[in-house]
Simulated assay, not measured.
Amino acid sequence: MGIMGHHGDKAREALLDAAEELFAIHGVDAVSNRKIAEHVGTHNHSAVAYHFGNRDELIRALLERHLHSMQGRRNELLADLPEDAGLREVIACRILPWVEQLAAMPQPSWRAQFLYQVRSVPSAAKVLASSFETNDGFDELFLRMRDSLSNISQPILRARASVLGHLALGICAEFEAALQAGTQHGNWTSVGYFLIDAGAGMLAAPVTHSEDFLSPPTIPSLI
């Protein structure tokens, strides 16, 4: 790689770092491309457009930034999962790659808080859908969950699995913020196993009411 290419990659990463932090703190729609450029110390206010083309592509780059490594780790865990694995072991394949990624982030980190912000922004809905439409391992995970919970109907199970993703994201965003504030208790490993235990209880809970209200999730899971 030439010197210019190296500098270009560093500038791109700096813009991604700045955008992730500012989006996490202020929300996606409240932060301009100019503000992102200024946050990295450049006077070139068109830097975001130069490196990413447009706003959607910046958000897409942020969403996909660590996606492949997380999917790779999930696939490793799935490959090692025994045929008679229990529900907690299956859920661990979903949760552990996510919390391991967050634990490995330089501090302060903004990843969970950014994702929590972006999932509530209507303008990012199409980017979210296209970035996560092939989230490797999720189909196999669902099949393994279904095998463990044959007494739960498929629509209910899919809805609960979606809730698990949103629950995990919210808790991790809160814990990430607490780390920065110095008020956290425990560590990312304890967060992960709390979510595994809570997820197992929720997925296996008795069904006591009609499932007529259910519809396919409108927002893809980000973890």
Rank of each mutant, 00 (worst) to 15 (best):
I25E: 15
A18I: 10
G41C: 10
H43Y: 05
E13N: 13
E21K: 14
H209S: 05
E13W: 02
N151C: 08
S130H: 13
R73N: 01
W188R: 01
M70S: 09
G8T: 12
E20W: 04
E21N: 03
E20F: 05
L115W: 03
K126E: 14
A79K: 10
Q113K: 10
R88I: 02
R55I: 13
G137R: 06
E20R: 09
V31I: 15
E38V: 09
C172N: 12
H43W: 09
H209P: 00
L164N: 12
S210P: 00
H6Q: 11
L16Y: 01
N54D: 15
L203V: 03
I171L: 10
P122L: 02
E38L: 13
H66Y: 12
E100F: 08
L15E: 00
P108F: 03
A19H: 09
E140C: 07
Y193L: 06
R160H: 08
G182C: 02
L96E: 11
P82R: 00
G8S: 11
A24Q: 03
D212M: 02
P108N: 02
H6A: 10
A173S: 11
E100H: 10
I171P: 00
F175K: 08
Q101C: 12
V207A: 04
S131A: 15
N187C: 13
V191L: 10
D212Y: 02
P122E: 05
L222Q: 01
E38H: 11
K10N: 12
R158Y: 06
K10F: 08
G5S: 11
L164M: 15
F175L: 09
P206E: 07
L102F: 08
A129M: 09
L157C: 03
G199T: 05
L169W: 05
